[in-house]
């Protein structure tokens, strides 16, 4: 019963314990507790990307190890969870290719209009991320913008976007992404000289 009453150390307290004794048993024990709190989340996140338990486990190990090695550089300006999330996200992004803004095999390719290549060329000319962001802002509804961003820049699976955005309509993110791409394509067509 006493264990339930004893307050658990916060992430910040564990990081401080590690900083005070990084190579000692107390410091390593603190990191072990800290990373142990997040290991399941890291694994689940990796699994969402690679859809393979063994590969996800390898990625999660790499993420945890990288976090451990880099903990000395964590300066406490952000939450430990978001710092660790950034490491996991970057590692996962390196693992898979990004789908195009205009075409995506996972979103029912058949429903997309045939392309003569012009919108793709226009898109390639939008090298500047700020210009691309402006185009998305001018063309799409906020929900469509976020879905497309999650798909193309965060490389999240379509089903995952449905959950992340809490979409409860029948088609989930799939329909949203199709609509966003149609609008984007039409906007790029209109820009064609």
């Amino acid at each position: 019963m006493t264990e339930a009453l004893r307050p658990e150390p916060t992430d910040e307290e564990l990081i401080a314990r590690h900083a005070a004794d990084p190579e000692g048993a107390a410091g390593r024990a603190a990191v072990s507790i800290l990373l142990g709190r997040y290991q399941r989340r890291v694994y689940v996140w990796c699994h969402r990307y690679v859809r393979n338990p063994e590969r996800a486990l390898e990625l999660a190990q790499e993420v945890l190890l990288r976090a451990y090695r880099s903990l000395g550089s964590f300066q406490g300006r952000s939450r430990f969870g978001s710092w660790l999330f950034a490491i996991a996200r970057n590692r996962c992004l390196n693992e898979i290719a990004a789908p195009s803004l205009l075409r995506d095999d996972d979103v029912e390719l058949d429903t997309l209009p045939a392309s003569d290549g012009t919108p793709e060329q226009m898109l390639e000319e939008l090298q500047d991320e700020e210009a691309l962001r402006r185009l998305l802002a001018d063309t799409l509804e906020p929900e469509e913008r976020e879905a497309l961003w999650l798909r193309c820049f965060e490389r999240l699976p379509v089903e995952e976007i449905t959950v992340v955005m809490r979409l409860d309509n029948a088609t989930g993110a799939r329909g949203l992404l199709q609509r966003a791409r149609r609008k984007l394509r039409a906007a790029l067509d209109r820009r064609t000289p």
Binding site: T10, A25, I33, L64
Partner: peptide, 22 residues
């Protein structure tokens, strides 16, 4: 397996996991 991995890597016993406060 991740608990075992951390225990091996850190040389500390596998943590008794609790959900993060966040």
């Amino acid at each position: 397996r991740l608990s075992e991995f951390l225990a091996r890597t850190l040389g500390a016993p596998a943590p008794a996991r609790a959900p993060a406060r966040t």
